[in-house]
Amino acid sequence: MPKRTDLAAATGTDVVLRMKGVRKSFRRGLPPRRREIRVLKGADLEIRRAELVGLVGENGSGKSTLMQIVVGMLSRDAGEVSLRGRIGYCPQTPMVWEKLTVAEHFALFARAYGLEPTDARQAEGTLLDELQFERYRDVRVEELSGGTRQKLNLALALMHRPDLLLLDEPYAGFDWETYMRFWEMSERLRLEGMGILIVSHLLAERERLDRIYNLFDGRTEVKE
């Protein structure tokens, strides 16, 4: 399998993510009913700094698989993935610990991202305020509503100011006000230079996006 490369060294361009010819199959079941499901058959994707890009496709088309390959949670069978800078990843289902509080999650991810204590506190305060869930700071995840869990899920992806932000159905469970705030925040982050990929089976805010990829039959095509 080809190695990932650092795009900064490889190309010297503004590209923060480039995927080329990515293939992925899953094997399911036991013999004699074992079968191979080919999900990605050569997907290509490119995101530059300060771009807000959408990836759409039907349920089960492989959007989340593609994203998990980018962040390294899944291996790929073939193809190239090149990345530049730090990644922030907001998974479709919040990947959090039920018995830990919101503040404890921020502390764990601050440690993982290698943030200085002052930077971590500032990032936590800003995100709690911006996504308006400060009053839940000391509440355990198991006691949060679905929408507030999703806010935490998103905040954890953002707290280290990544160069590339990968959002998998990020606004599921958001109320209208939070949904609109999410888009305003995404546009602001784009203006600050962040490359953002938003995966969804339904993108209503098409006019806000620089480009939309459609994932169909395991391949991506730019949607006009």
């Binding site: 998974p91 990947m95 993982a112």
Partner: peptide
């Protein structure tokens, strides 16, 4: 119980 969250934390840089 927490394999996905653990993997996310590891991937985040830990």
């Amino acid at each position: 119980s927490s394999r996905e969250a653990d993997r996310r934390l590891a991937g985040a840089g830990l």
